[in-house]
Structures are given as structure tokens and as C-alpha cells.
Amino acid sequence: MLLADIGNSRVHIYNGDEVTHLSHQRAIELYSHKQLHYITVKHQLKDRLKKLDNWRDISDKIILKNAYDTMGIDRKALCLSVSSGMFISAGSAITIDVVENGVYQGGFLLPGIQAYLKAYMDISPALQIEFNPNLLLDKLPQTTRDGISYGIIASIKLLVEKHQSNKKLYISGGDGLLLSSFLDNAVYDETLIFQGIKNALKKG
């Protein structure tokens, strides 16, 4: 069974072995004739998706105990991938949620790494940098690039650790692998949302 997570800018399709990342238009062109179950946060696309006979919206199957009404369907799916832990999706925004024994405890949102970088650039062109993935956190930065990179990661890391205690971190999203390298007791897996979808379908 093909599963899809349709985001605001990309479609992520899982065939059971690997995840393919496509534009909305390209995904429809390549997969409209195939049986596919999907969730989506792209509300502007919903009417078009409903016209695809082989595609089925399974958002109503994604049920997370104690989740609030406006919580994104992709966040719910991620939180269903494992029964307990802290779940982080690092994309255009960074979402951080806690689940214990299948019950949602709460969470919060931060700007994504690219949004942080854009905010600095908007302050001044002199602050336009590329993030340093090899940043060391055990000493104070001595360059603008490292200073900005440090400020971004340290602010995320401090908030995560405040709520982490001994919880395992389950991380997904486009910047998830990068972010996981700065966090302790963290696992990066781009299939986590799809594991959550599969768990929800088993119950449904």
C-alpha cells in the first residue's frame, strides 16, 4: 500500500521501503493511477485530491488521545509512531510533542532552521549565512556564521532538554538528520510519520 504525507510544499510518498519527495504536481502526474492513502495539511489542494479516484484521504483514522482540535494531522501521525517519547518534526517549522503511553501530553512550535536564517538575513544582509553543520557547542563562537548557528541550535536544544528528562527523541523532517546530530538520545527516521499512519490504520 502506498502512503502519502502531503505537506504545504512537497508530497512525501512511502512504498514500504523508501520515501520519495515530489512537488504536488509531479506526485499527481506519477501516482494518480495508483492506489494511495494520504493525509494532508494542504487545505487548498483538498478539492483537487478528492477528484482522484485512486487516492483516499485517511485523516479521520489518525486519532491521538488527548490531542487538541487544531493540531496538525502530520503531527498526530508522527506521535502515533511510538507509544512514548518526544517527537520532533524539523521542517519549515519545528514541532516538538510529548506522548506517554499513547496519550498526548502537549507540545510547542518553533521556527524551522531556514526560517531562523531568514529572520537574521532580514535584520541585515551582513547576517546572511549558511548554517554550520559542524558547529561545536562546547565553546563560544568566534565568527558571525558560528554565532548565528549557535544561537539557533542552542535555543532549540535548551527547550528540548527542558522537557526531555529521560525520554527518547524521535525525529523526522527535512532538517531532522541535521538537528538530531546536536541532540542526545535521538533517533532520526524519515518514515516515522508513515509508521504512525500504519499504526492508526491497524486500530481503525
Rank of each mutant, 00 (worst) to 15 (best):
N8H: 06
N8W: 03
S9L: 04
R10A: 08
N15M: 00
D17V: 06
V19E: 03
H24Q: 00
H24W: 05
Q25K: 13
A27V: 03
A27F: 09
I28W: 14
I28G: 10
E29K: 12
L30R: 11
L30T: 08
S32I: 03
H33F: 15
K34D: 06
K46R: 06
R48F: 14
L52R: 05
L52D: 04
D53G: 13
R56I: 08
D57S: 03
S59G: 13
L64Y: 07
G72C: 13
K76R: 10
A77G: 03
S81C: 07
S83H: 14
S83Y: 14
G85C: 10
M86C: 11
G91L: 00
G91C: 00
N101V: 09
Y104G: 05
G106M: 00
G107W: 02
L109Y: 15
Q114M: 06
A115T: 06
K118T: 12
M121E: 06
M121R: 10
D122R: 07
S124N: 09
L127V: 02
L135G: 03
D138P: 06
T143P: 13
I152Y: 14
L158N: 15
E161T: 10
H163S: 13
K168C: 04
Y170I: 03
G173T: 02
G174C: 01
G176F: 06
D184M: 04
N185W: 05
V187R: 11
V187C: 14
D189E: 05
L192H: 01
I193Y: 14
G196E: 02
K202A: 06
K202Y: 12
K203N: 15
